[in-house]
Structures are given as structure tokens and as C-alpha cells.
């Protein structure tokens, strides 16, 4: 293989890896968006999922336990948010902001308490399970780019397809969408919009918990601010993808490609690294402007 092909394979392979947390979180956030609640807490929920997931995985030396803990902690936080918003009628944005601030605080405090550091907590974990037989990775180009990924990365795509099915083809999905379109009508027909919204928040929690855990797992560590804006980018992906799961997946790939590219370009000393690191965020901004203009 030539040099350029190697570089391209690297960039594309890492694009798929970097898309994993974005996919989990944005598809999760899509549920709550469709139910009529803009979920600005994705960032915080991802942080909570990352911390508790990694802590449980590290303690048990078992990735699956980590997955369960990540989901449980992020779902608990989104249920808390749901109760505050739906039962106590708190403002959606204030409650979301509170979760984001809480996430930063609680992970730092617990990190200090449990691991006596506010910086990097590294975990030694078993190697991630490959979803495909090793032989498939030998196929030129397609093998390394598409067919040598972990079970978690493949799950993100199954999660996306599953969500599309739930949203479009089940009573549950129709109920959630209808609540976002006309909550009053749902109520008048004898169903509870609040229940649909609570369920949508649970989906959000599952998605962002998994997304955060995928981030932690990719570096086998927890770092404060590990999410660093990916929750917000996931939120942008929902809008860029016009609230359609497959288009959201495409948007996530675009952002992940920018992240992958910026990681690669960092290797060249001639470009200031700060500018390079800003690339994913710049792509996010530009894509929003382009999408906004189309309307």
C-alpha cells in the first residue's frame, strides 16, 4: 500500500471510531427532541456515563459491567431531570444546565475522593472485543476501515438502526413523536404526554451514557472534561440531520471526520495545534450555517 492509502485508511478508520460516542448521544437526544424537549444536558449526561462507566469497569475489570453502570448512572440523572421538569414544572433549560454543572462537579469531587486526583485516571482494562473475525481485516482498504471495529462501535450503528425502527414503526415511537407535535392532542386522546417525555428522556440517558463510556473506553481513562463539547456537537447533529436517524448518522460521520483529520494534522508542526484542534468545532459551525441557509 502506498503512503497516501495508509494515511487515508488511518483517517477513515478513526472517523468511524470517533463517530461512536456522537452516534450514541445524538440518537439518544433525538428521542427527547422528538418528544418536544430540546435536551441540552447531553454533554453532562455523557460525562456522568463516562465517569461511572469507567469506574465500574475498572473496579470489576469487566467492560460489560462498565456498560451497565454507564447506562444506569446517565439514566438516573435524566430521570432526575425528568422529574424536575415534568413533575415540578421546572424550566427545561435551567434543569439541563443544572445537570451539566452537576456532572462536572460530581465527577471531579468523586475522582478526588476515590482516586485522589483531579487529573487523568487511567484504568487497565481487557482489550476491547473485536466484532469481526480477524481474517476480515485483511481485505484491502475495506478491512481495516470498516471491518476491524469493537463490539461497542458496531453497537452504535445497531443502536441507530434500532432507534429508526422504534421511532417510525412502533406505538411507542409514534406516541413520542405525537407528543412533540401536539401534546394537547395526545392528552385529549387519553394518553399521557408526560409519560412519553419521561420515556424519551430515559432513551436520552441510555444513549449519552453509552456515548460517554465509549469515549472513556477509547483512551482507557477518565479525564475531567473528557466530553469536551461532544454532547453539544451531538445536539447539532440532531438538527443537521433534520431529526432523521440516518441523516443524523451521516452528520455524526462528518463531525467525526473533522475530528479524525484534526488529530492527523496535529502531526505537522508547521500548523499551530490550537487551530487544528478547533477544526471539529469550526466544521460544526459552518455546517450549521449551511444547513440554516438551506431552509
Amino acid at each position: 500500500m502506498s503512503d497516501i492509502t495508509t494515511v487515508l485508511v488511518d483517517i477513515l478508520k478513526y472517523t468511524i471510531v470517533a463517530a461512536t460516542p456522537l452516534l450514541f448521544a445524538s440518537i439518544g437526544g433525538l428521542f427527547s427532541e422528538l418528544s418536544g424537549m430540546l435536551n441540552i444536558a447531553l454533554e453532562g449526561l455523557m460525562g456522568i456515563g463516562a465517569f461511572f462507566g469507567m469506574a465500574a469497569a475498572g473496579l470489576s475489570h469487566n467492560v460489560f459491567i462498565g456498560v451497565l453502570a454507564a447506562i444506569a448512572s446517565a439514566v438516573a440523572a435524566s430521570l432526575l431531570m425528568g422529574v424536575v421538569i415534568l413533575r415540578f414544572k421546572a424550566n427545561l433549560f435551567i434543569a439541563g444546565l443544572a445537570i451539566n454543572l452537576l456532572a462536572g462537579g460530581i465527577t471531579t469531587v468523586l475522582s478526588q475522593w476515590w482516586y485522589h486526583t483531579k487529573a487523568v485516571v487511567a484504568f487497565s482494562l481487557p482489550d476491547p472485543l473485536n466484532a469481526f473475525p480477524a481474517a476480515l481485516a485483511q481485505i484491502p482498504f475495506i478491512g481495516p476501515v470498516l471491518l476491524s471495529h469493537s463490539v461497542l462501535t458496531v453497537s452504535a450503528w445497531l443502536w441507530t438502526l434500532g432507534a429508526a425502527l422504534i421511532i417510525n414503526n412502533t406505538r411507542h415511537g409514534i406516541r413520542i413523536r405525537a407528543t412533540g407535535m401536539h401534546a394537547q392532542a395526545v392528552l385529549a386522546l387519553g394518553y399521557s404526554p408526560d409519560r412519553a417525555r419521561m420515556a424519551a428522556l430515559v432513551w436520552s440517558g441510555i444513549g449519552s451514557g453509552l456515548g460517554g463510556f465509549a469515549l472513556g473506553l477509547s483512551i482507557s481513562a477518565f479525564v475531567p472534561n473528557i466530553v469536551s463539547g461532544r454532547g453539544w456537537i451531538a445536539l447539532v447533529a440532531i438538527y443537521l440531520g433534520r431529526k432523521k436517524p440516518l441523516w443524523i448518522a451521516a452528520s455524526c460521520l462528518l463531525f467525526a471526520f473533522a475530528e479524525s483529520l484534526s488529530n492527523y494534522i496535529q502531526g505537522f508542526s508547521s500548523i499551530p495545534p490550537l487551530i487544528v484542534l478547533a477544526l471539529p468545532y469550526a466544521v460544526t459551525l459552518v455546517s450549521l450555517i449551511v444547513a440554516g441557509n438551506k431552509k
Binding site: 409514534i174 413523536r177 405525537a178 407535535m181 401536539h182 394537547q184 392532542a185 392528552l187 385529549a188 386522546l189 387519553g190 394518553y191
Partner: peptide, 28 residues
């Protein structure tokens, strides 16, 4: 006690401002 209860009793109301989900199909 609720619209659901009214429905079970066989009572339904068509409102002046329709309670429709615009993006769902007629069947849905």
C-alpha cells in the same frame, strides 16, 4: 375523570381547532 375515561364510556369530541398530528399519516 379524564379524556381516557370518556373514551372508555364511548364519548368522543371533535374540537373546533383540530387536535391532529400534522406529520403523521391519516391512518396513524
Amino acid at each position: 375523570s379524564s379524556p381516557a375515561h370518556a373514551r372508555r364510556l364511548g364519548i368522543g369530541m371533535v374540537h373546533q381547532h383540530f387536535l391532529m398530528f400534522d406529520e403523521l399519516s391519516a391512518a396513524e
